[in-house]
Design a protein around this nucleic acid. Structure first.
Lengths: 192, 192, 192, 192
DNA sequence: AATGAATGAGCGTTCATTCAT
DNA sequence: CATGAATGAACGCTCATTCAT
């Protein structure tokens, strides 16, 4: 089992890197096997298909993200702080686990109806958390009344935009960006 | 001649739909031909390659979007109004030309370095316009000083989020969503 | 008929040039039509197939060569002179009608069993003439007894070699080469 | 491994036969695979492309010919004898390795500029050897002064003609033909 | 007679998957 | 368990031929 899992581990590690760089169709099983230093056939001892690897990766990516997000406890009394932590963790995750993040954001292989509800759920976890916090904020009077789903979608979009920013302009830190976002949310950008 | 253009039209129309649903690699030329009710070889009378169809579609999508965006004149004295119009038009475009919008938003075939600068430029046109307007707003004192590129990315992300919202919750109108965005931008969401 | 033949003429003219340069498979009917400034379909009004054009060209090439060779009358009393004329005419033909000559020498599409006896006959006409002259020479005591077919093949080969020479080294004239060949035939290349 | 080389061997063997009969374009990879009793895809495990098979074959043919020619040592004191051996070996090669010989003589794929200098060189090796020997013969006074390149081309042509003879008239032996050629070269065919 | 748009069989090549060892 | 040779369906693309106009 130890041995076994080590090889399976190597396969997804490599697959993650390749899918992340070249996309699903741009990656061949041959390449995965080569970079994992095993034979092509061996891949099929651990995964039933190329697709199965991809699906497993998304599940893994979900877990990895959850590991980050769970460090921003929801039961915090202060919604603003809680949101700050949540977004910070999402961006830290995106930066540290770029490949996972890309997998979760990618539209690659998204549309094919073969993709399970489970995977769609994983992809939306962050959004769901945001919406929940916004709901709480409204209940507590910290956030003006409004449509929490809409606001959640807007905020999730902002975070995606923030990630783009991080990717292209490495001079900004995650904290600076998060501050900008919170400032925008609480004060708006109008003068005075 | 008339015939010719009608058939070319059918090809891209069908290709747009298929690329939009299944992505570039998930779509075959055979499928395009079948749905267009022509023979496979006929596709190549109108396009030199599958790739050429895709590129043409992106250029078309760029034009279609520009047709919408150009209806929100930049030289308006009021930045808030100008932004409202710009975003409204983007969302109208996204809603009316869903397939074009998806093509432009898709990360498909983005990673492969083979894609020209031209296409990347088309994909970013909306963002560029946003940043420009934000710059103007700052110059005029309508928007607090800040990093216009960052704010542009955040706003572009919000608009992507808004589109998600429209897709999933048809009870909201574009105008309502745009109002929410502007409200958020100018006042923030804090209570009073 | 005048009109008709003029177009048919254009087609083989162009086909000759293209087949000669790029070979049978390297030439498309489309190219032939374009260079002949007619529509692709029109080609099929004059020829039943691409192959038919090729076959016609070989027949034409045979006629063109015969036009040259017929200027070296066989009934000449002097075999050496007759041979000189025959070879000279072959080389003049090869030089002046390079494309025809290439078509006749080409192994392209030679092996496919579909090629008729007729065409094989055309391809060997020059050889046949050589053998005939050699036979006459032997009868008249001008050429030592021997196997005329073998000598004919050897001589035909020499002429092919002579053509190569002309192609690659334009400083030699046909007459010089023919003299060398005849000298070799009658005296050999031994010293004194 | 043993298996591997045996299969690769089967592929070129079959390809040689097919290219020799039908030419490059007249042969399909499918046919090669079928006659080799393997799947089409398997061909690509051993060769990167159809072209690569062809190139390999020409290189092989070159080696095979060299194996024959190298048995006619150049440093022989007697040029006539050396030439006799060289031509004998060329004809033996042509007879024993008919398919290789055809590949080397074929004009197929010669015109397309894509073919490397290397391959042209292989195709001309025999000619080059002939010219060299003729040069030596002239230096030693065994052959009358003349243009060695021209004489080489003529002689190479004679050998091609000799091969034709062998193909069509199996009653003649290589030795008889070589004797005829040498006789012609040294004495000419004039009576006495 | 002339067109050229349309066809579709066939090409060379790739690659996820299988299976004998 | 592991291998990697073998498979064959499927791909993008070409082009000789047909046919409606």
């Amino acid at each position: 089992m130890a041995r076994t899992d080590e090889k399976k581990e190597r396969i997804i590690r490599v697959a993650l890197s390749l899918f992340g760089q070249a996309g699903y169709d741009g990656t061949t099983v041959e390449e995965i096997a080569q970079k994992a230093e095993i034979a092509k056939g061996t891949v099929y001892l651990y995964y039933t298909s190329k697709d199965a690897i991809y699906r497993d990766l998304i599940v893994e990516a979900g877990k990895a993200r959850r590991a980050y997000l769970s460090q921003s406890p929801r039961e915090d009394g202060n919604v603003r702080l809680a949101l700050a932590r949540l977004i910070t963790q999402e961006l830290r995750f995106a930066r540290a686990e770029k490949l996972y993040y890309r997998l979760l954001s990618s539209t690659d292989r998204n549309e094919g109806s073969e993709f399970s509800e489970e995977i769609r759920r994983i992809r939306r976890e962050f959004l769901t958390e945001l919406i929940e916090l916004i709901r709480v904020g409204m209940l507590r009077g910290a956030i003006r009344e409004g449509n929490p789903v809409l606001l959640g979608q807007l905020l999730a979009g902002m975070v995606r935009g923030a990630y783009q920013m991080l990717e292209e302009n490495s001079s900004l830190t995650v904290d600076q960006i998060v501050l900008s976002i919170l400032d925008l949310l609480w004060r708006g950008w109008a003068v005075s």
